[in-house]
Design a protein around this nucleic acid. Structure first.
Length: 488
RNA sequence: GGCGCUGUAGCCAAGCGGUAAGGCAGAGGUCUGCAAAACCUCCACCACCGGUUCAAAUCCGGUCAGCGCCUCCA
């Protein structure tokens, strides 16, 4: 469906981290949504936890599109390393990886940028409208830092620039922290060139030997950890843009710092903040530092990426998702149930007749409404998925008898629009080569005919042997009232 | 220590004042040469203890258990 500016959109309620409650979404500009999502630091392979975040916000974006909004979706690529810790002797992650792999830092960035894109592409995550790179926006970052200095919210010290946390009382509003409650100086010595241990770096002076370095008013250096997101989101989405998203673990300090940097410089920032919860394995957060992660490229060797996506949308984005062998076996079977119902609808549509399908069409509409209602309530994908299973139950029941073209088409469009376009669960083009699949069709038709002859002659040993042999290579034969059929 | 979250059937997971969605697994049945698929039926005293209420998984207080952030992390 498509809306023009004069059309109305259904109310959407989203949980706003700033207000700590569900609020009605109001677009800044009618019919348009601007979203910013904190993207990856491209220094190693993406794991399932990254997939949870990417899929969560991809679904949100897709739902806005489904309602007819024009969405500008900006997600950055961090290709300059943040430091590993807040002391000056910490090593840059990009540089550490570069040394390990004996590559230039930019080679590391390129390598992992493309593997990230590939991993997400297979998960059917749409490409961002704009995917700005931190190293391509050093100028914007420097300009923002200069504004902060001019307004008295940042200061230079020994070639580095720090944000003066004490000058900005709102610091802590997002994460609900009071400055004085924070542990001070326990994990690090208060550095000599900082006024307060909690001040964070906007610009860092480059030590000799630091490869990634740029000229700045404060000498050669590199940007701090948080400034790129403030600078790039404002550049591409403008002041007071709609939605800023990211992982819950980024809420503090990263997002807190982003807000401070933008608003202290006089630029109203994001109006809604959305955070996805973490993915756990054995009850513990999957993370690189814990080492308990499964990379997507490894996972894809044993699991269809669509099943991974299904597993992720089966839990709410604000809930913790437990990732275990049991969970994905369950996801595998559940996904199969949905996708095979869809396949059967398509198959039956090829030679469908007209008929009275009003009963089925009414049921499809009921499930469609349930799906929409769930999505409009803070993108409740588990309930939306439940609606898809409800649809599947009714469709399968109808499929057991006579269904006309209109009924099949109603079911098909529900699967395509809700399961496909919104949840992204039915990626196109998964079958290889048209030619091969044509040949396979013909070949199996012959096999099925031969087997049918055995069955007619009650030579069940022979017919069962054929079925077993095909099963061994992953082809399933099912006998139905209308004859045998096969599926992968 | 500060801030915050979670505990729902064997597993995954919604619901967040009106008497427990959905999926996987399991049991029985229909169909079938058998099987598979599909359909029908069954399968939860919502961690524990108090309190508020006509009514609580849902609100309040406490207890226990687990987790996250406060350091790079999606």
């Amino acid at each position: 469906m498509t809306h023009t500016d004069s059309q109305t959109f259904p109310d959407i309620y989203i949980h706003d981290t700033l207000q700590r409650r569900k609020v009605k979404f109001e677009a800044t500009s009618a019919g348009r949504v601007g979203m910013y999502l904190c993207g990856p630091t491209v220094y190693s392979d993406a794991h399932v936890g990254h997939a949870k975040k990417e899929v969560a916000f991809d679904v949100i974006r897709r739902y806005f599109m489904h309602l007819g909004y024009m969405v500008r979706y900006v997600s950055n690529i961090t290709d300059v390393g943040h430091l590993q810790n807040d002391s000056d002797d910490g090593e840059d992650k990009m540089l550490a990886r570069a040394r390990l792999e004996q590559l230039q830092p930019m080679e590391v960035a390129e390598k992992y940028f493309w593997s990230f894109m590939d991993d997400m592409g297979r998960l059917n995550v749409l490409r961002p409208s704009i995917q700005p790179r931190a190293t391509g926006h050093i100028g914007e970052q420097i300009a923002l830092i200069q504004e902060l200095i001019a307004r008295g919210h940042a200061y230079e010290s020994a070639g580095s620039v720090y944000f003066d946390v004490r000058s900005w009382p709102n610091y802590g509003a997002l994460s609900g922290r009071k400055l004085d409650d924070q542990e001070e100086g326990t994990r690090e010595e208060v550095r000599g060139d900082k006024r307060d241990a909690r001040d964070f770096a906007l610009w860092k002076n480059a030590e000799p030997g630091h490869i990634m370095r740029w000229d700045s008013p404060w000498g050669q250096g590199f940007p701090g950890w948080h400034i790129e997101c403030s600078a790039m989101s404002l550049k591409y989405l403008g002041e007071g843009f709609d939605i800023h998203g990211g992982g819950l673990d980024l809420e503090f300090p990263h997002h807190e710092a982003e807000i401070a940097q933008a608003e202290a410089a006089g630029h109203p920032f994001a109006r809604y903040w959305m955070h996805n919860n973490m993915l756990t394995i054995g009850g513990e957060k999957m993370s690189k530092s814990k080492g308990n992660f499964t990379t997507l490229s490894d996972l894809y060797k044993r699991l269809d990426p669509m099943v991974v996506r299904f597993l992720l949308v089966s839990s709410h984005y604000r809930s913790i998702t437990e990732f275990s062998d049991d969970a994905f076996v369950s996801a595998q079977n559940g996904y199969k149930r949905l996708s095979e119902a869809l396949n059967e609808v398509e198959r039956r549509l090829k030679d469908a007749q007209e008929g009275d399908d009003s009963a089925l069409i009414a049921k499809v509409e009921t499930h469609r409404a349930a799906f929409e209602k769930a999505m409009q309530d803070d993108f409740n994908t588990p309930e939306a998925v439940a609606a898809l299973f409800g649809l599947t139950r009714d469709v399968n029941a109808a499929l057991a008898g006579q269904v006309g073209r209109a009924g099949l088409e109603a079911a098909l469009s529900a699967y395509r629009e809700l399961g496909g376009e919104v949840l992204g669960l039915f990626a196109e083009g998964q079958t290889q080569g048209e030619d091969d699949s044509q040949r396979l069709d013909t070949l199996l038709e012959l096999v099925l005919q031969a087997r049918q002859n055995y069955r007619r002659n009650k030579q069940y040993a022979e017919s069962d042997a054929l079925r077993d042999r095909l099963a061994a290579v992953g082809l399933t034969i099912e006998d139905t009232k209308d004859g045998a059929r096969w599926k992968r």
